[in-house]
Nucleic acid binder design. Structure first.
Length: 833
RNA sequence: GCCCCCAUAGCCCAAUUGGCAGAGGCGGAAGACUUAAAAUCUUUUCAGUGUCGGUUCGAGUCCGACUGGGGGUACCA
């Protein structure tokens, strides 16, 4: 075993079989009495081999998992695959193979890479979301949601890819309005789809973010809050001439109610159709044209805020609830059908969009707020300037509100509306319900049956006891997107006969969004082979929630929001006793090349497999950990894997050179080196818990350097302090470089595995300094550094400072105003004049 | 447009949370070893913290304004 030089290949081959035989990271079901930590990395999607992004995220997750083991915790650190989804299906279409084949062969490749990379996973808990044993519980979850009214079907406008002929999720539509896959301009199409009622949970999803403050990245919390988009204001009811029902609109500015001069309805809202129905033919035609035209509009055109306002008059008038005036009702696509009530009251004087519209169509503009400029000067009339007065001010032209400030008027206005029964206080969220159905093959079948014949139009859930509804084989199915799910064509699969009535029912042909799969997988890891339930609530009580989640910020909104939602639903159902799934979260940065994102087309790919092969797992992991703060992007041009390998070799040689025996009494060792070791033992836990992995590596380098110096200097290889340091280095290094650390541990005469070694407590007596170095400042500049006994009092320090000749020189003939003593750091002398 | 983050040496990054700006690495230079090179080892080099102002005995750190860079989001009423 005693090699003379460090060779990562030899070491990897030596230890991998040992670990695989011992399975040190398998969590046993028996209680141990130790505290628990659930450390989770976002599970990978199996598209090809692992890449550098995986290497980074799993490196950080593994540092934390290994760290908590050294601290005496039982650590659950599982791995699985998010293995349903479009890429498998696209590959299947392109190459004519089964999506299963593509998926599971990629998983095997990733498993093999992980094996060498050696994260400390519990490999007995592996799950794949595309296994029937997993998605069976997706279906269970769906049915539970359905029972509670949280899963429902509705007609609505969805994103439609006119090339691939499929519905797209919002996240599959790029910012420029094109499909991320086909590149085609996405259009809107009205379809019946399944939704999860996440909007019911909007307030809780927002409020509970406060609990995560300081534990999740502020950026993610901000993005979540933004996405939920709570707005407070009022609902105002408008009567429409010749229309029975009052029309509610939402506004955040009830203070400007007296300035409302027209109404606007979203052209694609049902309300617009209803209102125009009774109008004359010319109006109906104009509206139909307008609707068709705005439907054709691509997202990019529609989202361009600078574009000219367009719209058509609906031939109707509403009655202003306060003034009683007739105000015209228009349809315009700057109003969104699915926000608020799909209709607004327009206050052109105080809203830029309304003003633009009013100016375009020559509608009245009434100013109701006296808004002043920064200097208190009068601002130009919006009708002339074209600039709406959106700031704060004093109400005018508003009987009952005149003279009030904006905030006062908001409250007063709501009160008035409520008294008159023409409105009320209201809250609206930007968050929409979650569209979960997909017209695709490679996903979880939706466990619903649709009636035929006399049951036409009826739906019934699949009996829980018959789950899973397994996906039929893909052979014989045309997986190409056609606009309807390929499963509908699997006639034999889709047709179900009711054993009692003999009636024919058809399976819902859609599959679930893969975000459903990933919204609860962390629960399945708790009891992954349980065939009686989705997860064991007792295990959830023991391990949950996830203590540490690690993954990319690209999931800051959707995956995390959906997971938080499902967790709250499971809480409401009584399966778990917590409402937030992930207590702490770390988002790793990206791995870049020369400041740019790596991509095949740019040809600047740093391949994980290549790096692993040429430098080994340890050097790669140390490089990623050392490159900088984990949240920051890493530019591969700035790092040196060779440098990391050099450090590992240096550390390894320290252990090799130790000549004392295991178990030697450390207290007789060199005091200087021992101090360094114990300072390190005391400092590193804080650093790891603060995610300062780069600093920990730097400290380890420093410790290796001082130990090397001690060995080569007067201390020598046999000094117990050298062994103590080498053992500490091996133990701490095991978080970053498990192979090298294990080899060091073995050279130091210990049994495998160092991963289960416990963190030695730092000896407090070695941490106290008996001398302190106190800087003396005069007028903010350091003039002397005093060496004082640690027991020195403030008065001693002040006296010593004033006695210093260089301090006296600095003071000169100036008068001393104040002397501030902050031991053990500094004495600060403030002078006058 | 709105919201958030960042700015320290040629480069990547530290700085006990308001107390002497430097821990570590990369790169550069010199030297040792070598026939030579690589590898290895030793020594060494380098900024006053983006700009302006404020608070303070004292500011990289706190506050304000600005500049530059990055990210998120946007007819959301």
């Amino acid at each position: 075993m005693q090699n003379e030089t460090y060779d990562f290949r030899v070491i990897q081959e030596r230890w991998l079989p040992v670990w695989e035989a011992k399975e040190p990271f398998v969590v046993k079901p028996e209680p141990t009495g130790r505290p628990t930590k659930y450390i989770l990395d976002m599970f990978p999607y199996p598209s090809g081999d692992l890449h550098m992004g995986h290497a980074e995220a799993f490196c950080f997750g593994d540092i934390l998992a290994r760290y908590w083991r050294t601290q005496g915790y039982d650590v659950l650190h599982p791995i699985g695959w998010d293995s349903f989804g479009l890429p498998a299906e696209n590959a299947a279409i392109k190459r004519g193979v089964d999506p299963r084949e593509w998926t599971y062969s990629n998983i095997d490749q990733q498993k093999a890479s992980f094996r060498t990379y050696a994260p400390s996973f519990d490999w007995t808990r592996v799950l794949h979301t595309s296994d029937p044993e997993y998605y069976r519980w997706n279906q269970w979850l769906f049915l539970k949601m359905y029972e509670r009214g949280l899963a429902y079907r509705k007609d609505s406008w969805v994103n439609w890819d006119p090339v691939d002929l499929t519905v797209l999720a919002n996240e599959q539509v790029l910012a420029d309005g094109t499909s991320e896959r086909s590149g085609a301009m996405v259009v809107k199409k009205k379809l019946t789809q399944w939704y999860f009622r996440i909007t019911d949970y909007a307030e809780r999803l927002l409020a509970d973010l406060d609990q995560l403050e300081g534990r999740w990245p502020a950026k993610v919390l901000g993005m979540q809050r933004n996405w939920i988009g709570k707005s407070e204001g009022a609902e105002v009811f408008f009567e429409i001439e010749g229309h029975d029902e009052k029309i509610p609109v939402f506004t955040t500015r009830p203070d400007t109610l007296w300035g409302a001069t027209f109404m606007v309805v979203a052209p694609d809202a049902d309300l617009a159709q209803e209102l125009v129905a009774g109008a004359d033919e010319a109006t109906r035609e104009a509206f139909a044209d307008y609707l068709a035209q705005s439907q054709k509009q691509s997202e990019i055109e529609r989202q361009n805020a600078d574009r000219e306002k367009t719209g058509v008059f609906l031939g109707r008038y509403a009655t202003h609830p306060l003034t009683g005036e007739r105000i015209p009702v228009w349809a315009a696509d700057y109003v969104l059908a699915d926000y608020g009530h799909g209709a607004i009251m327009a206050v052109p004087a105080h809203d830029q969009r309304d003003l633009d519209f009013a100016l375009a169509f020559d509608l009245p503009i009434v100013q109701v707020l006296d808004v002043r400029g920064e200097e208190g000067e009068e601002l130009p009339n919006p009708a002339e300037s074209g600039i709406a007065l959106t700031g704060d001010g004093v109400l005018v032209n508003s009987p009952g509100l005149d003279g009030l400030t904006k905030a006062e008027a908001v409250a007063e206005s709501i009160k008035t509306l409520e008294e008159r029964g023409t409105g009320k206080q209201a809250i609206t969220y930007r968050l929409r319900d979650w569209l979960i159905s997909r017209q695709r093959y490679w996903g979880t079948p939706i466990p619903i049956l649709h009636g035929t014949g006399e049951h036409e139009g009826e739906m019934k859930p699949v009996d829980q006891s018959t789950l899973p509804v397994e996906l039929p084989a893909s052979a014989g199915l045309d997986l190409k997107p056609k606009g309807s799910s390929p499963l509908g064509a699997a006639t034999e699969w889709a047709t179900v006969e009711d054993p009692e009535t003999g009636a024919t029912w058809l399976r819902d042909p859609d599959t679930m969004d893969t975000f459903v799969d990933s919204s609860w997988y962390y629960f399945r890891f708790l009891s992954p082979t349980d065939s009686t339930q989705a997860f064991d609530p007792a295990e959830a009580k023991k391990w949950g929630p996830v203590d540490q989640y690690v993954g990319g910020v690209e999931h800051a909104i959707l995956h995390l929001l959906y997971s938080r939602f499902i967790t709250k639903v499971l809480f409401d159902m009584g399966y778990i006793d917590f409402e937030e799934p992930f207590l702490d979260m770390l988002n790793q940065g990206m791995v870049l090349q020369d400041g740019a994102k790596m991509s095949k087309s740019k040809g600047n790919l740093v391949e994980f497999a290549e790096q692993l092969e040429s430098h080994g797992a340890d050097a790669l992991r140390v490089t990623l950990a050392f490159a900088g703060p984990p949240e920051d992007d890493i530019d591969w041009a700035d790092v040196s894997v060779q440098g990391s390998a050099k450090f590992l070799a240096r550390a390894w040689r320290v252990a090799r050179d130790v000549t004392s025996e295991p178990g030697v009494d450390f207290t007789t060792g060199d005091a200087e080196l021992r101090k360094a070791t114990h300072h390190l033992l005391a400092e590193v836990p804080k650093l790891v818990e603060d995610y300062k992995f780069n600093v920990v590596v730097a400290r380890l380098m420093e410790q290796v350097n001082v130990t090397r110096k001690a060995i080569d200097g007067s201390v020598g290889t046999a000094d117990p302090a050298v062994r103590e340091s080498a053992e500490a280095i091996a133990m701490m290094l095991s978080l970053f470089a498990p192979y090298a650390a294990e080899d060091m541990w073995a050279m130091l005469g210990h049994e495998a595995t160092v991963a289960l070694a416990q963190w030695p407590a730092a000896d407090e007596s070695l941490l106290v300094e008996n001398e302190i170095k106190v800087a003396v400042q005069v007028g903010g500049k350091v003039r002397d550094v005093l060496v004082l006994p640690a027991t020195a009092s403030d008065a001693d320090a002040e006296a010593a400072a004033l006695a210093s000749t260089s301090v006296q020189r600095a003071i000169g003939d100036k008068e001393i105003a104040r002397v501030i003593v902050r031991l053990p750091k500094i004495v600060s002398i403030a002078t006058k004049g």
